[in-house]
Design a protein around this nucleic acid. Structure first.
Lengths: 244, 244
DNA sequence: CGTGGCGTTGAGGTCTTTCAACGAGAGTGG
DNA sequence: CCACTCTCGTTGAAAGACCTCAACGCCACG
């Protein structure tokens, strides 16, 4: 999949502020956090191992025993929950630097994790990672802050799923993505996931997502250079459509 | 509002395992957690103050500067986000023992908090509470675990809002409530919030909630002794309707 | 050059919403 | 004590937003 590799590169450039770290170091995110000193980092390195995933590959499934904790270093992952009849809800897209799989107060993963594009992760053995949290309060504080931020994002998504129209959902999605990407307004935004992924994230069908994107394009609010890129043409109006 | 007081009593009996603590001590939940020893508890007591709220009263609003952290001791609170045109999404109902208002990585509250019935809360000054977290790692660990559990609940709610039909949403709601309440199957479950609250929590309208409850009653899955109580008549079938 | 995955577009159907009317219960004031 | 009013909940009918089903085009791949 040449296309996927290209998308992965664009992603990395777009979403990761520290390209060198992305390219070379599997525990870079913790170092980048600035919460660990050199000795702590060395200890951490000892319990970590890297892994690469092709696009579409599952890292773990909902219900699996949570034996590892992860940090995304490159690419993009989707986290999702499934119902018995196949209905799916994507609860988040992860970008480099995100932690996931931290199942506190649980022994199993609450969601499945699958690579959207070729992806790299750091793996930590769970018990050892927990022990590390014990010993490095700064790390625990960082995790708490991130978990709290994630919770706030989940609540924002609840507003989107519970109360917004399709147009508002799609507009909100694009704006949130752009914010995370810190993309400049003129530059196209990588959209590595499929329409089905977007639909399952926004609680819509692929047809509705497609129609809505086309609609926004027709009205000149966005441009769609190709299937996996969006450019925000009129930020203010798009934000107005997204509501609040 | 005599009705509200009665509902509040039923709630306390149903949702709070430790009646004595509920009745007497505003920092009881931390003690009940078992994470603080006597000295630590004494310190905590020094920075806490109680407050009582009538039903319908707002504790704080989305966007307010987050100067305090709270613990619910009695009654029920709803947390919600609003859109500019008045659409509302309730992101959670709180029962005694829940912490809220912990705005890590933020300076303002991400949602509004309003009393559903007469309610009691503990207030902690935020800077001092954060300092406390610093000094009592067990407390911080407890908060992290709870935040993580809340996040998992929010993701479950995303599945509900994004992919479930009205019947499934209402059935899921009743089951989740019953689980939290630890109600026995035969006993009626207090439903202190209004139909509008339920609707705004489930991403539906009050009419749909009403019709759906009536439908479940007609089919014999639940009983509705009065507007503010539900009894689960056929747990297995209700769970089947709720899906997974 | 055929095949399969992905995305787009159209037409019809369905679930939920919107609009409207009505009833029950609580609080108010004559 | 009894209208009166207001809120809340229920029910019906019509409307609407999104979904389902279907067809088609594009592109990568074998």
């Amino acid at each position: 999949m040449v296309g996927s590799v290209r998308v992965a590169r664009a992603l990395r450039a777009a979403y990761c502020g520290n390209r060198d770290a992305c390219d070379t170091c599997e525990v870079h995110k913790l170092a980048v956090c600035g919460v660990l000193d050199r000795d702590e980092l060395a200890e951490l390195t000892a319990i970590v191992s890297g892994r690469r995933l092709e696009a579409g590959r599952t890292l773990f499934a909902e219900g699996d025993v949570a034996e590892e904790v992860f940090s995304l270093t490159e690419g993009m992952l989707k986290l999702y929950k499934m119902m018995s009849d196949g209905r799916r809800q994507i609860v988040g897209f992860l970008v480099p630097g995100d932690f996931f799989g931290l199942a506190f107060a649980r022994t199993t993963y609450a969601y499945s994790a699958e690579a959207v594009v070729p992806t790299g992760v750091c793996r930590f053995r769970r018990p050892q990672f927990l022990e590390l949290l014990e010993r490095f309060p700064a790390l625990e504080k960082e995790i708490l802050g991130r978990t709290s931020t994630e919770l706030a994002a989940a609540q924002e998504q609840m507003l989107l799923l519970g109360r917004k129209m399709a147009r508002e959902r799609v507009a909100s999605f694009i704006i949130t993505l752009a914010r995370r990407c810190q993309a400049t307004d003129g530059k196209p935004l990588p959209l590595p996931m499929t329409r089905a992924d977007i639909a399952d994230y926004l609680g819509l069908t692929i047809e509705t997502v497609s129609r809505t994107l086309t609609g926004l394009r027709r009205e000149g609010l966005i441009a769609l250079p190709n299937k996996h890129e969006v450019r925000i043409a009129r930020p203010a109006e798009l934000a107005r459509v997204a509501g609040s």
